[in-house]
Computed example of a mutant assay.
Amino acid sequence: MKFCLIDAEVFIDRPELLDPLRSLGAVEMYAGIPQDADEVERRAFDADVIAFGLMQFTNEMLDRLPNLKILQFIGTGVWNFVDVDYARSKGIKVLNIEGYGSNAVAEFALSMALAMAKKIPQAGNVLKTGGWSIDGLMGMEISGSTVGVLGTGSIGRLVAEKFVNMGAKVIANDIYENESLKKDWGVTYVGLEELFRSSDIVTVHMKVTKENEKLIDGRLFGLMKPHALFVNVARAELVNNRDLFEALKEGRMGGAAIDVYENEPPADSDYELARLDNVIATPHMAYYTQEANDNSIKMMVQSIADAL
């Protein structure tokens, strides 16, 4: 049996974590995203199992992999990276992993919100350009503010708890209400419009489905307070990013922190959003800690072993 980590060598800084796979067959690793279907075929033509973490799999690529039995995504939300229905129609089992970086992402969301609220990037730029002034740099305190958490699964739950511990009033929106958050942490569930209308900070932690694509649009941004901040470390597809760009450019909201993009690497429109002065933009790195990285490899290996 042959295992191919087709773009995932960057994740492997502890090779011994792959020993369970090596006991089952040959393991090949590659760095960088394949540029086209030809390169995918060169790397993985005879692979039985492919693990990937960065690239988009096209149907043409799948057509060129006759031995492929398992396609394992090293992350959450595999349907954003491959046509799962098409793969399954070819007899390919498609897998992803859950929860490996929940705390890492929650801490990152909190960090993004704090950096915006305290205007840390803008303050840093003052000194980087040889200045010394606090004009326009008055911050906002988290204690006493209202934070809206959109999605209270494994990540959103942690985000809500961390903000409560900082003294914020936390409101939330989800199809499934977390009873522990309500009972033990004082979180109140509200409607979507009320969440955007009442929050000083809105942070997004939903999974993408066909039903909620571009759910967050200009109508909701129009309800936000002029100073309110928006954090998206979930998926870009949840947001109408053109509406977000216009709201930020026109100063109708205080700022945004973005770690996810409709195209990765970003397209020109994504960079246009990232270049705005009231935006913090990072290269999809919220999950990227040593602890989460090790968890992802261990869970990937276990997922493949279970499937086999």
Score class of each variant (00 low, 15 high):
V94Q: 00
E28F: 11
K182H: 01
A117P: 10
Q290N: 13
A37P: 03
P265F: 00
M116Q: 15
L24R: 15
G32H: 08
N173A: 11
L68G: 12
N212D: 06
M55S: 07
Q72F: 08
V84G: 05
Y100D: 08
L18Y: 07
K225D: 04
S296E: 00
K182Y: 01
R43W: 11
L71I: 07
V40R: 04
N295Q: 05
F3A: 01
S199Y: 09
E194S: 13
L192D: 04
A117N: 12
L18A: 06
Q122K: 14
G139T: 12
I33P: 10
F108T: 01
R64L: 05
K182S: 09
R64A: 02
M55C: 11
F196A: 00
S102A: 15
I201F: 13
R157H: 11
M61C: 13
T282D: 03
A160G: 04
D7Q: 01
R235A: 02
A115H: 09
D268V: 13
A228H: 10
I175Y: 13
E194I: 05
A286I: 12
I216Q: 01
K128L: 13
R22K: 15
G75P: 03
L192Q: 05
G186W: 05
A247F: 04
N241Q: 15
E246I: 14
V301M: 00
V204C: 13
F245H: 15
P283D: 08
M253I: 15
P34V: 06
R219T: 14
N212F: 10
R64T: 02
S102M: 02
D13E: 14
S133Y: 04
A292D: 08
L54G: 01
A115Y: 10
M224D: 09
L68M: 11
Y271A: 05
Y261H: 11
L215R: 13
H284C: 07
P20N: 06
L21A: 03
E272V: 05
D19S: 13
V78A: 13
T282R: 06
L68P: 12
L62E: 01
F81K: 15
G218T: 10
E28H: 11
P15S: 04
G99Y: 10
